[in-house]
């Protein structure tokens, strides 16, 4: 298997990562996701990593890339469901994924996207303020 399925849920895209990501797979995901975002005109992307037991600096970089590139094509990315052990390890490694939005689970991630995109419609200039 060389591709991770990307689902369209309403106005958002949902990616659930359930296999151990090796580099090619991760890079494919980056390319596919960005293509899907521009093709479908999606404003929000949810990446569910609750089944992922390990995120190293390479995968961290992919997540960061996806968030940054989506932002350029006017979409928001939320990474949801990171496990405690993975979060502690990432911080210890020195990666804080500062440019990526996060949420506890898919439901909370959806809420966050609705909130952010709602405020966007209101024309507020505070869309990217959550980078701390």
């Amino acid at each position: 298997m060389d591709r991770i399925p990307i689902l369209k849920m309403g106005s958002f895209l949902l990616v659930t990562i359930q296999v151990d990501l090796y580099d090619r797979l991760a890079l494919n995901l980056e390319t596919d996701l960005i293509r899907m975002v521009s093709e479908t005109n999606t404003r929000g992307v949810l990446i569910d990593i609750s089944a992922v037991g390990l995120v190293d600096s390479f995968m961290g970089r992919i997540l960061n890339n996806i968030a940054t590139i989506s932002r350029i094509v006017d979409a928001q990315t939320v990474v949801v469901g990171m496990q405690p052990a993975v979060a502690i390890t990432l911080v210890e490694l020195g990666l804080t994924l500062a440019g990526v939005h996060t949420a506890l689970n898919v439901e909370k991630g959806m809420e966050l996207l609705h909130k952010r995109l709602g405020s966007d419609a209101g024309g507020g200039g505070q869309l990217y303020d959550n980078s701390e």
């Binding site: 979060a87 990432l90 210890e92 996060t102 949420a103 991630g109």
Partner: peptide, 12 residues
């Protein structure tokens, strides 16, 4: 700071 960063990564 580490604790805060890890909490944020989890989405809180």
């Amino acid at each position: 700071i580490k604790t805060v960063s890890a909490t944020r990564l989890m989405g809180a």
